[in-house]
Amino acid sequence: MGRMNLRTIKFSKVYPLYVQKAERKQRTQEEVDDVICWLTGYHDGGLRDQIERETDFETFFEEAPCLHPNRAQIKGVICGYRVEDIEDPFEQKVRYLDKLIDELAKGKALEKIKRA
């Protein structure tokens, strides 16, 4: 089986998994939203709109108002890849998001996750 095409995966299908992962570790949906909005520049309404429209990851990132300038400070391994070394800019954005959710689930403070 080949790798899934990240571009065509619906954000609305992955979002509940992010929330579940966080909630299993006593974090909240609000914290998940906060982290997603920090990375993408969406406000809560824009994030909800993406979920309701069932946009794919490609559209989700294309329509993101402003990717955070500190996103390059997100480092480490996610899904077996070192995020800072991923060459495909699109895949790197998806993995940045995965990594932030992972850090949230591991109990990292929001200020640290947001590279404050």
Rank of each mutant, 00 (worst) to 15 (best):
K10N: 14
K10H: 15
F11I: 03
F11S: 02
K13R: 14
Y15I: 02
P16I: 02
P16W: 10
L17S: 12
Y18G: 00
V19M: 10
V19E: 04
V19C: 13
K21T: 15
K21H: 15
A22G: 10
A22K: 02
E23C: 05
K25V: 00
Q26E: 12
R27G: 00
T28M: 04
E30D: 14
E30F: 11
E31I: 04
V32G: 09
D33Y: 01
D34Q: 15
D34A: 11
D34T: 14
V35D: 01
V35H: 03
I36A: 00
C37K: 15
W38H: 03
W38V: 01
W38Q: 00
T40K: 02
Y42Q: 04
H43R: 12
G45T: 10
L47V: 05
R48D: 09
D49R: 13
D49C: 01
Q50L: 04
I51M: 06
E52G: 05
R53H: 11
E54I: 00
E54D: 10
E54R: 14
T55M: 05
D56M: 02
D56T: 10
F57D: 03
E58F: 07
T59Q: 14
T59P: 03
E63V: 03
L67Y: 05
H68A: 06
P69A: 05
N70L: 08
R71V: 01
Q73D: 09
I74W: 12
K75E: 11
G76R: 06
V77R: 07
I78F: 10
I78K: 08
G80C: 03
Y81N: 08
Y81C: 11
R82L: 06
V83K: 02
E84F: 04
E84R: 02
E84G: 03
I86V: 15
E87M: 11
E87R: 15
P89W: 03
E91T: 11
E91H: 07
Q92L: 08
Q92G: 11
K93Q: 15
K93G: 02
V94H: 04
V94A: 13
V94R: 03
R95T: 03
R95D: 05
Y96D: 13
Y96I: 01
Y96A: 02
L97W: 09
D98S: 10
I101G: 02
D102Y: 14
A109E: 15
L110P: 01
